[in-house]
Design a protein around this nucleic acid. Sequence first.
DNA 1: ACCTGAACACCGTTCAAGT
DNA 2: ACCTGAACACCGTTCAAGT
Lengths: 199, 199
Amino acid sequence: MPPYHHGQLRTALLEAAERSLRENGEEQLSLRELAREIGVSHAAPRRHFPDRQSLLYALAETGFARLDEQLRAAVAAAGEGYVPQLRATVKAYITFATDDAALLELMFSSKHRPGAEQVVAAAEPAFTLLYGLIVRGQAEGRLAAGDPERIGLVMFATMQGIATLINTGLARPELLDDLVETAVEQFVGNVKASSVRSG
Amino acid sequence: MPPYHHGQLRTALLEAAERSLRENGEEQLSLRELAREIGVSHAAPRRHFPDRQSLLYALAETGFARLDEQLRAAVAAAGEGYVPQLRATVKAYITFATDDAALLELMFSSKHRPGAEQVVAAAEPAFTLLYGLIVRGQAEGRLAAGDPERIGLVMFATMQGIATLINTGLARPELLDDLVETAVEQFVGNVKASSVRSG
DNA sequence: ACCTGAACACCGTTCAAGT
DNA sequence: ACCTGAACACCGTTCAAGT
């Protein structure tokens, strides 16, 4: 018979929730079902997550952390060149986002209730990475001049949008590489035509 | 006392649902509550929408139709110039998308169940409009050459992503005009630097 | 053809009580 | 400090029956 105290319930809930989210989407995720799977009463999760939403927020937060990791790994593996690093970043982002569409939706679903601030904060490292990439691109004359934050937001928006299009079925997944390339060309296009000719 | 047959139940449901969606989001939308508001039994909606999801699909479809209308109106009001028309389109899209964030989410939420095909089909006119804008831009030497569908997808993605960023709170709404301008410059930037100097 | 009313199987949330 | 069990107020969905 199982012990009265689970001991790892918080972790177990997060793991089960992550799998459920990936497999069946946010709507299908049920606290009672997670509790059943784990073998605990339906009221037990309350100690760790006061309500369903707080569990979802936690998933979104770890999602942003993992996204940041994967982006940094992609940059590190891309070598020294600026355009290859930029391309790797864009591709890594979209790959992450299309690999777990439900998680991406959760991360970007517009929740304005109190508690979402932590999610916004969790998104910051990924933004900082992007910001650095832009500042460097401008310093090396690869990107057009301008407010890096604004350019970074538009870049992030483009990647996010491409992922959404693929996840929605509005763009076929096979187009991923083409779309990545088109996006990258758009980012570096301003300069490419005037001051830089080849990669 | 109300008549046994409502007569306009389908329309009444759609209107009430649209308002509920805008005010409280998709999760809060309840068929039973809509039925109560309208003054009909909780089982009555079933005649018109077999389940909750089909009502949501219907909202997404009319959303795309309205989006298309607003985009065309914006283009028509923008005058003859290409860049003004492009800018007006981008701004109209993002304005639509941020005016009713829940509807946008619904329109783009990734549903792969049967029934979503109609939603995808409803999105087509807006895409066609964009496609035409791109073909014209290329013909006039304002946009870089390349597969118009690919460029259109990336353009759509950029607009959609900017809207998502604003709706999520990752970008402040006041940045809207700046972000629109940055996006437009990105679209026409390739050409501006080499063959076209001024607007 | 359209709507009702009761019934079923689920939820999330709350709270006194147990260990 | 952590978990249970019963209770509450909601859902979506189904279906025989009413008009």
